[in-house]
Simulated assay, not measured.
Amino acid sequence: MTPDLALAAVPLPGGVRRSAVPGADEDGRLLEASVREPERFAVIFDRYFGQVHSYVARRLGRDVADDLAAETFLIAFRQRDRFDRHSGVVRAWLYGIATNLIRRHRRDELRAWRAAAKLPLPEPADAHEDRVAAQVTAQGASGELAAALAKLNAKDREVLLLVALGQLTYDEVAAALGIAYGTVCSRLSRARRMIRAAVQNPSSAESEEDPS
């Protein structure tokens, strides 16, 4: 399966709806404790800063990621007393904050996808893992994939990238974006359909311009 088609095959839910998030309870207890003992927030920072930074970097580039990832954790620290560990997952909460910040740069991201669609695909990195990671960045995507991502509805693209890049479960995506689980499924299904059409048969791919 090519990297482009691998993205188009991001799985839809089967019989099991929820996927357990390892350490979720521990994260919640740590964050709750950090309200009284602020230094304990450092564990959350160390555990998730790299993940959040990588996610933002793949969407907006490393320079922007440095600022947005730092701002994500600053906001999280300031609002840590609002988190309810009994009804939320810390990782999803952090990605939700990051997503809100990324939305400020939506037009820049969209321009990058559109520009990438007109450029030849650069030489892939040696490692397979690097090739897969690069496939959904504006710098590394094929023309067909970049064009398809640019045409996606912004909300559909957001769900697809949280699953494909952030590796969030569907429940986490729902929590991060404040939407229903079924909405996550429908947006992901629509995004997959467009990506698959674009990379398998570019001339007949659907055209749905991003409204942002």
Rank of each mutant, 00 (worst) to 15 (best):
D4V: 15
L7T: 15
P11N: 02
L12I: 15
P13R: 15
G14V: 10
G14T: 15
R17A: 15
R17N: 13
S19M: 14
A20D: 07
A20P: 10
P22H: 08
P22I: 08
D25S: 15
E26V: 13
D27I: 06
R29V: 02
L31G: 11
S34H: 01
R36N: 03
E37A: 10
P38S: 03
P38K: 10
R40D: 07
A42E: 14
R47C: 06
Y48Q: 07
V52L: 03
S54P: 05
S54C: 07
Y55N: 00
A57T: 07
G61T: 05
D63Y: 02
D66E: 11
L68G: 02
L68Q: 01
A70W: 08
E71D: 04
T72W: 05
A76M: 11
A76Q: 09
F77G: 04
Q79T: 15
R80L: 11
R80Q: 01
R82S: 01
F83W: 08
L94K: 10
I97E: 06
I97A: 01
A98D: 11
N100E: 12
N100C: 06
L101T: 06
R104F: 10
D108P: 09
E109Y: 07
A116M: 07
L121Y: 04
P122Y: 00
P124F: 11
A127G: 03
A127E: 11
A127V: 07
E129L: 12
D130M: 13
D130W: 06
D130R: 14
V132M: 15
Q135R: 09
V136T: 09
A138W: 06
A138R: 01
Q139W: 06
Q139A: 14
G140I: 04
G140K: 01
A141K: 03
A141Y: 08
A141L: 03
S142W: 03
E144W: 02
A147G: 03
L152E: 08
K155H: 01
D156I: 08
D156N: 12
V159M: 04
L161R: 09
V163Q: 09
E172G: 04
A174R: 09
A175Q: 14
A176I: 13
A176P: 07
L177S: 01
G178Q: 07
Y181H: 03
G182C: 10
T183E: 05
S186V: 12
S189M: 02
R190P: 01
I195V: 15
R196V: 13
A197C: 02
A198M: 10
A205Q: 13
A205N: 14
P211C: 04
